[in-house]
């Protein structure tokens, strides 16, 4: 009895499936669009060197990658680095960015700027020496980075 019941269920399922997939009235469907959450998760699993390329896809994808939430989760989860407090991105002249949080210090204008390029460059640096301190300030100038750009990274221990 139990077996026959099971078979019936299976057959009914199969028939429904066949009918559904071979229905002649279905027109070719438009490409599936992924929602932002899913794109977010896919981008999280990409290596840092290809991320900048993916922010050029679309304004929406650029928004996702440059968002603060993405940058912090990418930094800690994917790269496994200490918790990121913020990156101060200072540049001569004004620099506009919708994601920047402005922070004024005296006459200088500092901006919180989370950009994918910074992650690409800075994940190569060694952070072991600075892990002893609770927080750390890293400033680079010159070598890799053009001289007019000054980068400061704040790190917090877990």
């Amino acid at each position: 009895m139990a077996l026959s019941k099971w078979w019936w269920k299976w057959i009914v399922k199969l028939m429904q499936l066949l009918f559904h997939s071979w229905c002649p009235c279905t027109s070719p469907r438009p490409p599936v669009e992924l929602c932002n959450d899913v794109m977010f998760e896919i981008f999280l699993r990409l290596p840092p060197e290809v991320l900048p390329r993916f922010s050029i896809l679309n304004k929406q994808s650029n928004d996702i990658i440059n968002s603060r939430l993405f940058q912090t989760t990418y930094w800690t989860q994917t790269l496994g680095l200490p918790r990121l407090c913020g990156i101060v991105y200072y540049r001569q002249g004004t620099y506009r960015s919708p994601f920047a949080q402005r922070m004024k210090k005296g006459k200088q204008k500092y901006q919180f700027q989370f950009t994918n390029v910074l992650f690409y460059k800075f994940h190569e640096l060694s952070f072991n020496s600075m892990l002893d301190n609770k927080s750390h300030l890293l400033t680079t100038r010159g070598t890799n980075v053009p001289s007019q750009i000054c980068l400061t990274i704040f790190l917090l221990k877990f």
Partner: peptide, 24 residues
């Protein structure tokens, strides 16, 4: 992804130039 490019060519070029120093 089925995405259309909504950047103007100038914006795209500017973005590429801006990030050229990182060797992207």
């Amino acid at each position: 992804f089925g995405i259309d490019n909504d950047y103007t060519p100038e914006e795209e070029a500017a973005y590429r130039e801006e990030n050229a120093w990182a060797g992207v």
